[in-house]
């Protein structure tokens, strides 16, 4: 039964491929995102840029607020729980969320253990900045992976490093001989079976999205060219001058990420992009949470 759910949950992520998942804080924003072509929305009380600005402890959103968004749109609705916060995840499952993001954007509830996601029927997406992290999260039951680019910064540099690192580690595993895989598994601190899967298939056993710092159609196209199968856009849309237009442009950029001419058109007249702060200016590197 559980294995069947894991499979169904991996398959929902397959349906999201080639799409854009947008952070929204109100039913109104959710409708704008859906209308613009988002393939799912992430319901949260504060977008990462504001979480960063506000400081303090950041927790799961009010279930009532999440329900409001579930009622507003027909596309899948995701929500975040804190790393290791089993009870928050249970609450999100009780309101029939479509995907839980066990997210470093919120304050971690556990400094050592992630949630045992195999105990849940609803699917989980988790962040990873390298292959070892990705495979550990998959072993714990995550059915979708995303990069851990610095959220709320509008700076894509971290997402790029994570995606590049992961792809290069995958290529390295593919090139190994079979008897080297045991040692590779040890070094990656990941289960041998998953290491073997990557060696044989040249990719993760689950869908892999880009997340963190994506603010423009060009950023989205960059992540797709680096091997992302879709993109999360957090603060980038509703912290910008013209959310409708920017959202629709990013959706088109993900579909036609290799057509520079179209990308040029899509990048025109989008209004003010989110101001952003760069990696060196921020005091808290959220990507260091949960390894």
């Amino acid at each position: 039964m559980k294995e069947n759910r894991q499979e169904l949950n991996r398959q929902l992520a397959q349906m999201l491929k080639g799409g854009v998942i947008m952070d929204v804080t109100t039913p109104e924003q959710a409708r704008i995102a859906e209308e613009a072509g988002a393939c799912a929305v992430m319901a949260l009380e504060r977008i990462p840029a504001d979480i960063r600005a506000a400081g303090g402890v950041s927790r799961m959103s009010d279930p009532k607020m999440i329900r409001g968004i579930q009622e507003a749109v027909s596309i899948p609705v995701m929500a975040k729980c804190r790393i290791g916060h089993i009870a928050e995840a249970q609450i999100l499952q009780a309101i029939e969320i479509d995907y839980i993001d066990e997210s470093e954007v919120l304050s971690p509830a556990d400094n050592i253990y992630h949630i045992d996601k195999t105990k849940f029927d609803v699917p989980f997406v988790c962040g990873a900045k390298n292959l070892g992290e990705a495979l550990r999260r998959i072993a714990e039951g995550a059915t979708m992976i995303r990069t851990k680019g610095e959220p709320g910064t509008g700076d894509v540099v971290q997402a790029v490093s994570h995606m590049r690192l992961m792809q290069s580690e995958i290529r390295r595993l593919v090139s190994m001989s079979e008897d080297e895989l045991f040692e590779a598994a040890k070094q990656l601190q990941a289960p041998y079976e998953l290491v073997k899967y990557v060696h044989e298939n040249g990719k993760l056993p689950v869908v892999n999205f880009a997340a963190g710092g994506v603010a423009t159609p060009a950023d989205a196209a960059l992540m797709m060219q680096l091997g992302a199968e879709g993109v999360f856009v957090g603060s980038g849309i509703f912290k910008s001058g013209n959310p409708q237009k920017r959202a629709a442009a990013i959706v088109q950029a993900v579909t036609n990420y290799q057509d520079a001419k179209l990308l040029a058109e899509l990048s025109e007249d989008l209004g003010e992009a989110m101001v952003g702060i760069n990696e060196q200016e921020i005091e808290l590197l959220m990507a260091e949470r949960g390894k």
């Binding site: 349906m15 999201l16 491929k17 080639g18 799409g19 859906e34 209308e35 613009a36 072509g37 988002a38 393939c39 799912a40 027909s74 596309i75 899948p76 629709a248 959706v251 088109q252 579909t255 036609n256």
Partner: peptide, 13 residues
Amino acid sequence: GESTTQFRLLNDL
């Protein structure tokens, strides 16, 4: 996939 997304893209493109 998502029918609303695909519809929007069919239109825009």
